[in-house]
Design a protein around this nucleic acid. Structure first.
Lengths: 213, 213
DNA sequence: CCTTGATTTGACCAAGCGGTCAAAGCCACG
DNA sequence: CGTGGCTTTGACCGCTTGGTCAAATCAAGG
């Protein structure tokens, strides 16, 4: 399941018939599966069309190009991806707010690993389809929340540290379990629940990191 | 510069002439540049050959296929990549050993970002060319070092936590600065030295994480 | 200088790619 | 029931791709 298939950001969704809705959703679902598994270049329209149970020309009837499918997916993704950080409440209890953010971000990685990998693939390549958003919306949001965190630090409610790097550490640690799942499973061996263990471990880690000295 | 260009793991390096040595090195260097930038599927032999200042058939005179170049790179990479963990000394002072490991791993990410991205790309795709190594050599090494860490925990010399996840957290946090450099720079804005700041931050983070309670 | 083997290359190929197009099928509504 | 627009498709196209091959070039020893 995609995080959000009701909008695509390509055009206004005005006047979508049921069949259009269904086929566009099927294409985005198939595109997510294929792009996240093989990356942009490795993905083929034939395979995306096949997984969406459509012919290739039919797919191109709904999206003008391969890139359009990819872009639509990334734009869909972004809101859901940033939601946990948006939810960080300046009026809340600092440590609990951060720990809740970590928890929600890890749940996202656990429940939407394909989205996580799609995003990772894109950023790895230098974010050619996201450069605007990274320097714009994303940077602004982090700026805002970093200010909140720094406020808490100045009040002595959490330990002092570079706020943006605190955010980076949350991204890195949570997405690692989705993006490098192959490696994590290979190292842990059988009989482990990586995300459950990660949940406890990250809770401990950030608890220790945040306590005011 | 590649981490190691003197061996390739394809065949025994017996009887390499100077010209063979030079051309193979040029191909690996070019392959690293291209693969790390575009991923395996996005890379073309033409471009690798061009960057190595060779014709495509000439490149294929030295490596039998595109995959062979890729595999050789990954095998080259692995030793250098695992060296910092190998250097973790069971006889050393626990906290200093871990912090030194973090520092070395971050230096690797800073000095060899292309290698880091090559590796990330491969694991993201499910490590089709590395599955054996992940479950073998890598898993064994982590097993060994996790035992060392757990020994230290039992002696109360560092705080108790799941040792393998401690290793994951080091990988995640250090590689993040190489693999997601685009995002990091977009969020930090101008006038920052991401790796320098990361060095200090990660030192603090792991210091706080490791202190016995 | 000539021979022998290593090296290099232009020309080429089959397969797969993203994308087009005209025609066919389908459906709702008058 | 028929008609007009939405939907679907088989056939096709030009291009790029990984890879081949025979011929040309080069380097070194005798």
């Amino acid at each position: 399941m995609s995080v959000d298939q009701t909008q695509d950001g390509q055009r206004p969704a005005a006047g979508r018939t049921r069949i259009q809705e269904r086929n566009r959703a099927a294409i985005l679902e198939a595109g997510l599966a294929v792009f996240s598994e093989t990356g942009f270049s490795g993905a083929t329209l034939d395979r995306i069309a096949r997984e969406a149970r459509l012919s290739k020309p039919n797919l191109l009837y709904y999206f003008p190009s391969k890139e359009a499918v990819h872009t639509a997916l990334l734009e869909n993704l972004l809101d859901a991806w940033l939601a946990p950080l948006r939810a960080l409440d300046p009026a809340g209890e600092p440590q609990q707010e951060v720990l809740a953010y970590v928890r929600r971000k890890l749940e996202l990685a656990r429940d939407y690993p394909r989205e996580s990998r799609l995003f990772a693939n894109e950023v790895l390549r230098g974010a050619p389809h996201l450069s605007g958003v990274l320097g714009g919306e994303l940077a602004a949001l982090v700026e805002e929340k970093a200010a909140v965190l720094e406020g808490w630090m100045e009040q002595g409610r959490i330990a002092r540290m570079p706020a943006k790097h605190l955010v980076f550490s949350i991204w890195a640690l949570t997405q690692h379990y989705a993006d490098f799942e192959t490696q994590v499973r290979a190292v842990l061996g059988e009989g482990h629940d990586p995300f459950a263990e990660a949940g406890e471990f990250l809770d401990t880690l950030f608890r220790r990191l945040l306590v005011a000295p």
